[in-house]
Computed example of a mutant assay.
Amino acid sequence: MAKHDIRNREDIEKLVHTFYGQIRQHPALGPIFNGIVTNWPEHLERLSDFWEMILFQTGPGKNKFNPLKAHKEVDMKIGQRLTQVHFGNWLELWFTTLDNLFYGRVADHAKEHARNMASILYLRIYESRDQ
Score class of each variant (00 low, 15 high):
A2H: 15
K3S: 07
D5K: 03
R7I: 11
N8L: 06
R9M: 12
I12K: 01
K14Y: 06
V16C: 01
H17Q: 06
T18W: 07
T18K: 07
F19M: 11
G21Q: 08
Q22H: 14
Q22R: 14
I23G: 00
R24G: 07
R24E: 09
Q25T: 12
H26L: 05
A28N: 13
L29G: 04
L29W: 10
G30S: 11
P31L: 14
I32G: 01
F33L: 11
I36Q: 04
N39V: 08
P41R: 03
H43E: 00
H43S: 05
H43T: 01
L44E: 06
E45D: 13
L47W: 00
S48N: 09
S48D: 06
F50Q: 00
E52I: 12
L55I: 10
F56D: 08
F56G: 05
Q57L: 09
T58S: 15
K62D: 15
N63C: 10
K64Y: 01
F65M: 06
F65H: 04
N66H: 15
L68S: 00
H71C: 02
K77P: 01
K77N: 07
R81Y: 10
T83L: 05
T83Q: 04
V85W: 14
F87R: 00
G88E: 14
G88Y: 11
G88I: 14
N89D: 10
L93Q: 04
W94M: 08
T97M: 09
L98W: 00
F102I: 00
R105H: 12
V106W: 10
V106Y: 03
V106I: 15
D108M: 07
H113W: 14
A114Q: 07
N116Q: 12
N116A: 15
I120D: 11
I120V: 12
L121E: 04
Y122P: 10
Y126F: 14
E127C: 03
E127T: 06
R129Q: 10
D130P: 12
